[in-house]
Design a protein around this nucleic acid. Sequence first.
DNA 1: ATCAATTTGGTACTTTAGTATGAAGGTCTT
DNA 2: AAGACCTTCATACTAAAGTACCAAATTGAT
Lengths: 138, 138
Amino acid sequence: MKKTIFVFSALIVSLLVLFKISTYSYTSGNSRIEYVISGIAIVFFGIGLYVNRRSASKKNLEPQQVDLDKLEDLGISKREYEVLVEIAKGLSNKEIGDTLHLSESTVKTHVSNLLVKLDAKRRTQALQRAKELNIIAI
Amino acid sequence: MKKTIFVFSALIVSLLVLFKISTYSYTSGNSRIEYVISGIAIVFFGIGLYVNRRSASKKNLEPQQVDLDKLEDLGISKREYEVLVEIAKGLSNKEIGDTLHLSESTVKTHVSNLLVKLDAKRRTQALQRAKELNIIAI
DNA sequence: ATCAATTTGGTACTTTAGTATGAAGGTCTT
DNA sequence: AAGACCTTCATACTAAAGTACCAAATTGAT
C-alpha cells in the first residue's frame, strides 16, 4: 500500500499549498480567485486520473491471477491442481506423469477427478471451465 | 463517444456552478472560500476517478483481441480457424461437427491440419500455441 | 478455362483419453 | 485408534482423438 500512502500525502500537500495560494490571492487581489479555483480543479482532476490509472493497471494483471480460494470450494487438491496446470500447457497424460514423476495411471486418476469436480467431459472443456473460474492463468 | 460528451458536459456544468458559488462566497463572506475550494477539489478528484474508470474498463478488453494476420502466415484457412475456436470452447469433434454442420470426419481433417500448422501433437497443445500466437481470445 | 487451394467426406487404423474399480500407504482430525 | 481424505498405482474396458490415404465438389485467381 505504498502507492496509497504516496497519493494521500500528495493530496494533503496539494491541499495545503492551494490553501496558501488562495489566501495570498485573497489578500493581494480578488480578481484571480477564479484562476486559482480553475487550477485547483485541474490539479485534482489530474490526481483523480492518476490514482485510477494505478488501480486500473493493477486490475489488468489480476484477471490472470489464480483464485486459489475457489480450489477449496471445488474440492480440488494440490496434486490435482498441479495436473490441471500441466494440462493447460498442452501435455499428454504420459508427459504429465514424466514431469510430475507419476505413472500415467495416477495422472489419469487425477484427470478423472478433475473432470468431475470441474463438471467437464473432456480436458479441453476442463480448461475452459478453469479459465471461467479464474483458477488458471490465461 | 456518448460517455465523453456526458463527462465533458458534466465538467462544464460543474465549473459554472462552482464559479457562481465562489462569487457568492466572495460577496457574502470570505471565511468560506476554503470550504468551497475543498469542495471543488473533491468534485474534480471524483470526476477524474470516474473518467479513468470508464477508459480502464475499455482497455481490459483489448488484450484479448485476436491477431488475424497471423492466420495467413500460418496458412490456417477460415474453416480451420472456426474449428479451432470451437476446440477452445471445449467441444468434442462430434459436437463441433454439429455446431458447424459438418461430419465428424471433416472436423478430424481440419483438426489434423490445424495440429500440423500449429506444430502441436494434441488439441490442448494447439490451444496453448494459439494463445501464444494471439490468434484466439483469452 | 485451368490450376491450386479449400472444403467436404469416407475408410481403416493407431494412439490417447477417460471410466470403473480395487487396493495400499500417508496424513490429518476427532 | 478410527474415519476421512489424499496420493499413488494397476487392470480392463470404452470412447474419443488423431493419422494416413483417398476422393470429389467448390472456390478463387491467373
